[in-house]
Design a protein around this nucleic acid. Structure first.
Lengths: 148, 148
DNA sequence: CAAGATTGAATTTTCAATCTTT
DNA sequence: AAAGATTGAAAATTCAATCTTG
């Protein structure tokens, strides 16, 4: 494949990702009072076993540093959406754990999130196109070590 | 299309974008001594007419605030890759303009950039798959106002 | 002393206020 | 006064050093 096509595809990917992120973030802020980042973090906790996750693990998943996550969780605790749990068994570990308030916010956010995704992804491509699109991203992720 | 497929596609898009960005940034830092952001900004200037761009326009393209760009350009000026031009005709305007040193760095960076793109995009999909992938991103960008 | 998280200092980015030119 | 960029103060993030528990 020619250079210019590759560059164009990467450029599209960049614009698509940014535009979708902006769209999701704007609607979430306006209608659910939380950022896309907040939504993603709360979703991680909500889906984790026991609805909680160790700080380092969560930092890796959210692609921020350990120190950065400490402050992020501080802010979410202030907002009442998350609390910290230090298990008796090993008092070095700290778990972040979603509260009932956090779960309520997430419910709100989830509806907005799904609506935006439906408008941007679902509405624009046919079933087949979207399946094919998904396949391509999967293949591309293979070589990149898309684990994380 | 079902919710879970949409979420999966968005999740893939997220992971793909992050992984490619990380890969590009790491290789550029290691082999060309600049970040992916630096590469992108220098490329914008290099391709612009007269190889220069007004501050506000550049800020919009790079998706940072006006104030943010002022500092970013300050740092690039210190590094010798960019300089400021205040035209006589309208002394309110400031243009950022790539220097010869910046162009040399960009040459280096360009080679790394293309090699990474070729390894991640070119190597993994067939011509047809990649063309189809490009088409899908184009369609998706339509509704999002992917201008910017 | 190793594992795990937090903290202080430095860097980067944004926001709002300000400065300069038209 | 409006257009355009810069600046100070605040917020968020990283890096390295430190604190705490095992």
């Amino acid at each position: 494949m020619g250079e210019s096509e590759m560059i164009a595809v990467w450029g599209n990917l960049h614009r698509l990702y940014s535009a979708m992120r902006r769209s999701l973030d704007e609607r979430l802020q306006a209608e659910a009072g939380c950022s896309l980042f907040d939504h993603d973090l709360l979703t991680r906790l909500d889906c984790a076993s026991d609805r909680r996750m160790r700080m380092l693990e969560l930092a890796n998943r959210m692609e921020v540093t350990r120190g950065g996550l400490t402050r992020i969780i501080d802010r979410l605790v202030e907002r009442g959406w998350v609390r910290r749990d230090r298990p008796e068994s090993n008092r070095r570990e700290v778990y972040a754990l979603i509260t009932d308030g956090g779960a309520r916010t997430l419910d709100q956010a989830r509806a907005v999130y799904l609506r935006v995704l439906d408008r941007t992804l679902g509405g624009q491509l046919s079933e087949d196109e979207l399946a094919e699109f998904g396949n391509s991203t999967n293949k591309l992720l293979m070589v990149l070590g898309g684990d994380r």
